[in-house]
């Protein structure tokens, strides 16, 4: 009986598996391009094989290590900041009892997500330029010298992380709000009866309810440990900050401008995927060992 019932579960999985197989696994045949000097008119079969040459070209450069490190540093910081800020924001928002206000705040913070980086990057550039509001109003009033934020490598990284958070935290908050709304209110009532203040309630009820979803989001975010955000960096960077701000994707883009990028692009994509996949596995194992939670 039980078994028969469970057989249905496999049927349920079927549509998803077919879709994924057709649209994701079949095209993976294209990964062979990583080992080819791919010529579109020759196709996968006839393009010349070059072994590891594409990888060598990417990693035998003087700046390879630096570019990978930039990518890793920016991506990791973003992962952490984009996890912590939305969680804290969700908790603070959860305290607002006025429903109208809560809705308004929620809606407003999610708006920047919808501006593309071309537009948002332009706005960030204007604000931080030598004639922008920060350098003409804020810093002088604090008695500080103007700072060329986007022309200095360290400031550049800072700007990249903060502006990314500014744009995305509101959208990222949604999933935590959804988790909060799944909490059974009777748990709070019970805590209240026990005499717990709000701080204790947050620790005892709210946070534990959030932990699983934080682990899920965090683990899956590990997949982008080498995705520092091409659109953003591309719209903000310039040669002055190459040493601190050039990332793998911008590098591939520049190479692609003079060379059809398929071989190299695929090779680097493969590298990024492999690293991301390993990181997800590590995060998965760590979560199940230390937090005793398996995300699937």
């Amino acid at each position: 009986m039980r078994l028969r019932k469970n057989a249905v579960l496999y049927w349920m999985l079927l549509p998803g598996m077919i879709l994924v197989f057709v649209f994701h696994y079949l095209p993976m045949a294209g990964l062979v391009m990583a080992f080819q000097d791919f010529k579109p008119w020759l196709g996968f079969v006839k393009s010349p094989w070059v072994g590891w040459e594409n990888f060598q070209m990417a990693f035998q450069r003087e700046d390879s290590l630096q570019v990978v490190w930039n990518t890793f540093f920016i991506a990791c910081t973003k992962i952490i900041v984009n996890l912590v800020v939305p969680v804290v924001f969700a908790l603070l928002l959860n305290e607002i009892r006025h429903m109208g206000l809560k809705k308004v705040i929620q809606t407003l913070v999610y708006l920047p997500h919808f501006l593309s980086w071309v537009v948002f990057g332009g706005i960030v550039g204007d604000i931080l330029s030598s004639q922008g509001i920060i350098n003409t109003l804020v810093l002088p009033s604090l008695g500080l010298d103007p700072i060329l934020f986007l022309a200095d490598g360290n400031w550049f990284r800072f700007v990249v992380i903060v502006s990314d958070n500014w744009k995305e935290f509101g959208f990222a908050t949604i999933v935590f709000l959804a988790a909060l709304s799944n909490i059974d209110p009777s748990l709070y009532e019970a805590a209240e009866v026990d005499g717990a203040n709000r701080w204790r309630q947050t620790w005892a009820v709210t946070l534990p309810a959030l932990v699983p979803i934080v682990i899920v989001v965090g683990t899956l975010a590990m997949s982008s440990v080498l995705n520092a955000g091409f659109d953003q960096i591309f719209n903000l960077y310039n040669p002055l900050v190459y040493d601190k701000g050039d990332i793998i994707d911008t590098f591939v883009y520049r190479v692609g401008l003079l060379n059809s990028e398929f071989g190299l692009g695929t090779a680097i994509g493969l590298f990024k995927s492999a690293v991301g996949f390993i990181m997800v596995i590590i995060a998965y194992v760590l979560a199940s060992r230390f937090a005793n939670y398996r995300i699937f």
Binding site: R61, E62, D63, N238, P239, L240, Y242, D243, D246, F251, R254, V255, L257, L258, N259
Partner: peptide
């Protein structure tokens, strides 16, 4: 070429 151009524009702008 990409590596050379990168080095060039970085050096010159700095």
């Amino acid at each position: 070429w990409e590596a050379l151009v990168k080095m060039e524009s970085e050096t010159f702008l700095k």
